[in-house]
Amino acid sequence: MSEITAEQVAHLAYLARIDLSPLEITNLTHDLGQIVDSIAKVSEVATADTPATSHPMPLTNVFREDIVVPSLTVEQALSGAPDRAGDKFRVPAILDEE
């Protein structure tokens, strides 16, 4: 049985910036425990001498030349913004008020 705790899930939710409800944390703690139990078996066959594969096709050295291509217009760039001020994206205060 996996060792995943509600505190751990709450911390993961903070890292992932999802404001989970207490009920969701309870449910996810349960789900995650089950899932992790089922998938932890990858370590059974992953021996030290097995190389890791991060890309399915073994390509290297794929580059772009340093040539400017047209950007979006400012209106296109901001077209989806939930909030804007002039030509900038507007976001709530970064720090908590003291």
Binding site: R64, D66, I67, V68, V69, S71, D87, K88
Partner: peptide, 22 residues
């Protein structure tokens, strides 16, 4: 460089806000 690290937008100081984006 003339362009950004991972896209062809101009690497330019002092352009109008959000004009060099994709």
């Amino acid at each position: 460089t003339k362009t950004k690290m991972f896209c062809g937008c101009a690497n330019e100081f002092g352009s109008g806000a959000n004009t060099n984006t994709c």
